[in-house]
C-alpha cells in the first residue's frame, strides 16, 4: 500500500502515542516494582543497628524510673538501692506500657491491673511472666544499652 504525506504524518503520530503509552506503562510498572523489591529485600539483621542508648548514672534518682525510647521499644531505667535495673515497659500480658508508682515501689499496668515489683517480678494480676529485663552494662559512669 502506498503511503502519501498524510498517511506518514498519521503514522508518526501513532508511533509517538505508542511510545508515550509504553513509557507511561514502564514508569507505572517501575513505581510498583521498586517499593516491592525494596520491601522484599529489606534485611532484618541490619535493622536495629543504631546508636546505643547511654544514660549517665548521675542523672538517675534513686527510687525513680526513667522512660526512654530505644529502637522502637520503650525501656524503663529504674535506679534502686542495689543498682540500676532496665526493663521493657511493655506489660507481658497484652503489651500496655506499665507505670512506675514510686510510693508503692511497684509497676502498675493501666490496662488490666497487673502489678510488678521493683525487680520486675509479678506481684499480682492476670500475668505469669515478669517484665522483660533488657541487658545493659555500666561503663564510665554511664548505663549503656546496646543489645
Amino acid at each position: 500500500m502506498s503511503c502519501d504525506k498524510t498517511c506518514e504524518q498519521h503514522n508518526g503520530r501513532r508511533t509517538f502515542c505508542r511510545a508515550c503509552i509504553g513509557a507511561m506503562t514502564a514508569a507505572s510498572a517501575a513505581m510498583v516494582a521498586y517499593p516491592v523489591a525494596s520491601f522484599v529485600t529489606s534485611q532484618p539483621s541490619r535493622i536495629g543497628e543504631g546508636k546505643p542508648l547511654e544514660i549517665p548514672l548521675d542523672q538517675l534518682v534513686q527510687g525513680q524510673a526513667r522512660y526512654e525510647a530505644y529502637r522502637g521499644l520503650q525501656v524503663i531505667i529504674l535506679a534502686t538501692a542495689d543498682g540500676p535495673h532496665v526493663f521493657s515497659a511493655s506489660c507481658p500480658h497484652l503489651g500496655c506500657a506499665v507505670n512506675w508508682v514510686s510510693s508503692d515501689a511497684q509497676f502498675h499496668c493501666p490496662c488490666h491491673g497487673a502489678v510488678f515489683g521493683s525487680d520486675g517480678g509479678v506481684v499480682s494480676g492476670p500475668v505469669n511472666e515478669p517484665l522483660k529485663p533488657i541487658p545493659f552494662e555500666v561503663k564510665d559512669g554511664k548505663i549503656i544499652i546496646s543489645v
Binding site: S38, F39, S42, P44, I47, G48, G72
Partner: peptide
Amino acid sequence: TFIKSNVSMGWLV
C-alpha cells in the same frame, strides 16, 4: 512498628 519504621518502604505497604 518494625514494618512501619524499619523495613524499607514498609510504611507505604
